[in-house]
Design a binder for these strands. Structure first.
Length: 617
DNA sequence: ATAGGGTTAG
């Protein structure tokens, strides 16, 4: 074996390091050839540096092959290959390499391997294994290693245990930016806003990295509003944005809250900062426009992703089209995606079956479901079964739905039973409905919507005692009823509505308008279905109660506020019930306006008395 | 060679 002059070795290593950090596959391959020619490939630390360069340049396969070619991998090489498996592969493949390291090459994990091992537990959310590793760390010679400790902080945070994370964090001797960022991110992602902010503001310097950790954590834990405010704060501090990570998070927040005007501002900002063609950010904008019901802009943002559209880009667009009831477009996009060589993932199929469900394409949905495993090797999850169940249920194929729920290889969850139950309610199969309702009750759900659904079923069946019982049970279990809410954008103004609460300053106007609309509806022969929920109220009260649905309030508000002919957007409703659906159709036919309503996860465009969902209700 | 920030569903 020949040794290169030290200078040459240094140059080769720094080239490999650059290849890793700047993602340069060609450089990695070139140096690989050079090392092979000069018989240096097997001498440490070249193999591990090369392997690192390959994985960071998105050449996982080359990395795995390289590893297999080295007959006696040392602990350096093992920690590289383990990191690669943690990042890009499965927990089982990670563990099989780890076992080989111990039982074939008799290497014990060092601090590097332990940190990687904990990192793998965090990524695959394996708390059980994570605790075992923690125990091993405590009795090992690395029990006071700060890097291993910060990986443990991350592991406990990702597994939803911020208090355990804090305990490890407190034991860290020298807290640096990484460990502080990890803890801030952990608090934010678990919704511990006060704790996150306390740590965050105590930091001497705040890099864009820790800002991103905080903001994205808040957004992901459903605190988008706080996230956006902090983004403003960050801009005020003059923090330089030098990559697209923060922007993606705030765009995602504006998508979740359906804040179109804000989303557009962020789009302008992104362009001015030079991220117009950034794929990740492009995906976020496609999603934002779709969730704000501006499907045309969504499509434009999608077409702007010129380079390579990844699975996320295609999936986002497919789901966006599906949510707008444009199933043909979704299926068309899927065909284009497949022919451009991008492999769909499990989320893609959720979107596709969902698209079919929206317009009642039963056979196509079933075909897609079957092709998941057959053509793409994706095992259908409970979510996919629930989607298919939803498709059968909505389209009135009750017997197929019933047999599917019996033969599916998962224990049906609340969502699955709820899909079947709402179908029973809608299609009037009361006997089956009560049976399913009992099943649901036995699952002891903690969400109020199931109880509402349940009591509706009993109401349809006329079992008033059971209705009262369901309501009482809800009270006993102290399940808080999440109020239905909507908000509406009229011009620059947006207004939030909560079901049953009339905004005080508009009370008179809104109630008068609702009365007027009610008269108009009666003239046209529409009789609201009050039987299910409101059996013990008197007639007048019933009408008023029905109008208290937030969607209707929002529409009333919009009718009052907006100039005629303007589109009214009602966003973020929890559920559009069949009754509301009829109401919206009527309003759109009377007023000649377009009304866009978003329920839990899909849009309904009402225009001239028609709905984009093909009157599927 | 190891630890921290991102976009899609529910």
């Amino acid at each position: 074996m020949q040794f290169p002059p030290p200078a040459t070795a240094q140059i080769l290593l720094s080239l490999l390091r650059s290849a890793a950090s700047f993602h340069l596959p060609a450089v990695a391959r070139h140096i690989h050839a050079h090392l092979l020619k000069s018989c240096l490939l097997h001498s440490s630390p070249f193999p591990s540096s090369l392997l690192n360069a390959y994985t960071k340049s998105d050449l996982q396969l080359d990395a795995y092959i390289l590893f297999d070619e080295i007959p006696h991998p040392d602990i350096f090489l093992y920690s590289s290959i383990l990191a690669a498996h943690a990042r890009y592969n499965s927990l089982s493949s990670f563990l099989s390499i780890f076992r080989r390291m111990i039982s074939v090459h008799f290497l014990l994990p060092d601090d590097f391997v332990l940190a990687t091992l904990v990192n793998a537990c965090a990524r695959f959310l394996s708390l059980r294994l994570g605790r075992q590793v923690h125990a091993y760390v405590l009795v090992s010679t690395f029990s006071s290693d700060d890097i291993v400790k910060s990986s443990l902080v991350d592991m406990y945070s990702k597994c939803g245990l911020p208090n355990d994370a804090r305990r490890v964090f407190d034991s860290i001797e020298l807290k640096n930016f990484v460990s502080l960022t990890t803890m801030v991110s952990g608090y934010a992602a678990n919704g511990c806003i006060a704790e996150a902010l306390e740590l965050f503001w105590r930091m001497r310097e705040r890099s864009v990295f820790v800002w991103t950790a905080l903001i994205s954590g808040l957004v992901r834990s459903g605190n988008g509003f706080e996230g956006l405010n902090l983004f403003v704060e960050m801009r005020r501090e003059g923090t330089r944005i030098d990559d697209a990570f923060v922007l993606s998070s705030v765009v995602s927040a504006s998508a979740d809250m359906a804040m179109l005007a804000l989303g557009k501002q962020l789009h302008c900002l992104s362009v001015s900062l030079g991220y117009e063609s950034n794929m990740m950010l492009g995906n976020a904008f496609v999603d934002m426009y779709a969730k704000c019901s501006d499907i045309a802009s969504s499509r434009m943002a999608f077409d702007k992703i010129l380079k390579i559209k990844c699975v996320v880009s295609w999936t986002t667009m497919i789901v966006g089209e599906a949510q707008h009831g444009r199933a043909e477009e979704s299926l068309d996009l899927f065909a284009r995606m497949v022919s451009s060589g991008v492999k769909p993932n499990e989320i893609t199929f959720v979107g596709l079956i969902y698209a079919c469900s929206h317009i009642g394409l039963v056979w196509k949905g079933r075909e897609l479901f079957d092709s998941m495993l057959k053509d793409y090797g994706i095992k259908p999850s409970l979510k996919h079964y629930t989607c298919l169940l939803d498709l059968f249920s909505r389209s009135g194929h009750l017997s197929e739905a019933q047999s599917l729920i019996q033969i599916m290889p998962y224990e049906p969850d609340e969502a699955a039973w709820a899909a079947l139950l709402s179908a029973c309610n809608k299609h009037g199969d009361i006997q089956l409905g009560v049976h399913v309702a009992d099943k649901l009750l036995r699952l002891k759900p903690q969400v109020s919507s199931t109880y509402i659904l349940l009591s509706n079923t009993y109401a349809i069946a006329g079992k008033w005692d059971s209705v009262a019982n369901a309501r009482k049970l809800m009270d006993d279990l102290e399940i808080k009823k999440q109020p239905g809410y909507s908000w509406i954008e009229v011009g620059r103004e947006s207004c939030l509505f909560q079901a049953g609460v009339v905004p005080l300053h508009m009370r008179e106007n809104i109630l008068a308008l609702l009365k007027e609309l009610m008269e108009e509806m009666k003239k046209r022969g529409y009789v609201p279905d009050t039987s299910s929920v409101l059996h013990d109220l008197d007639e007048d009260e019933k009408e008023l109660q029905l109008f208290m649905h937030s969607e209707r309030l929002a529409v009333a508000f919009g009718l009052l506020k907006s100039a005629s002919g303007m589109t009214i957007r009602v966003l973020k409703n929890l559920r559009v019930c069949g009754d509301c659906h009829t109401f919206m159709k009527l309003i759109s036919s009377i007023s000649g306006r377009e009304i866009v309503v978003r329920d839990a996860n899909r849009f309904h465009h009402f225009e001239c008395g028609r709905c984009s969902c093909g009157d599927f209700w």
